[in-house]
């Protein structure tokens, strides 16, 4: 089957079987390697991308279910100002250890910050608990989210 996909603002085409998970279309067909494979059953969050701005696990999202929704991956995170702020905070605070889960963490953080520009501890916990970090960089991830929130707060006031 041929699928027209809108990825990070660009139109792309993939000729794959309907049940192929979006993750493998991104990684192996379209060579967008930023989205990571961790578990294959929506348990670790490493494959998180956005469909129309909402975080989904691409490892369990068949390509046929994407339809005309806009896909945003880590490669396109800098397309929004908030996404750039997330990148900056991640770099300045040196969030990554191995870095493998961080694309998924950042995509979840971006969705969280869109929903709650000033997230409480409880909102951070519930918004991020589906993203595992085997190196356990959770303290820095939380700090980075709070840093972006502070920045947004200052701009708003």
């Amino acid at each position: 089957m041929s699928y027209q996909l809108k990825i990070n603002g660009q139109l792309m085409q993939a000729d794959v079987a309907a049940d192929t998970p979006l993750l493998w279309v991104l990684r192996d067909t379209l060579k967008l390697k930023g989205t990571k494979f961790g578990c294959g059953m929506a348990q670790c969050g490493a494959c998180t991308v956005h469909l129309d701005g909402k975080p989904v696990r691409s490892c369990v999202t068949p390509i046929s279910a994407v339809k005309d929704r806009a896909i945003t991956t880590i490669e396109g995170i800098a397309n929004s100002e908030l996404g750039q702020q997330v990148q900056q905070a991640w770099k300045i605070l040196d969030v990554p250890q191995c870095g493998y889960c961080q694309a998924g963490q950042m995509m979840s953080a971006l969705a969280l910050l869109r929903q709650f520009p000033q997230p409480t501890d409880a909102q951070i916990a519930s918004g991020m608990k589906g993203n595992l970090c085997r190196c356990a960089t959770y303290h820095r991830i939380k700090q980075a989210i709070q840093q972006v929130a502070q920045h947004t707060d200052k701009e708003a006031s």
């Binding site: 997330v86 770099k91 870095g99 694309a103």
Partner: peptide, 23 residues
């Protein structure tokens, strides 16, 4: 001195970097 990781730019922008990313 607190020094950020040398691969951070690639990590936060999803550039190919890990073994699994080799083409």
């Amino acid at each position: 001195k607190f020094t950020a990781g040398v691969d951070n730019d690639a990590i936060v922008s999803g550039q190919p970097l890990f073994g699994i990313d080799v083409e």
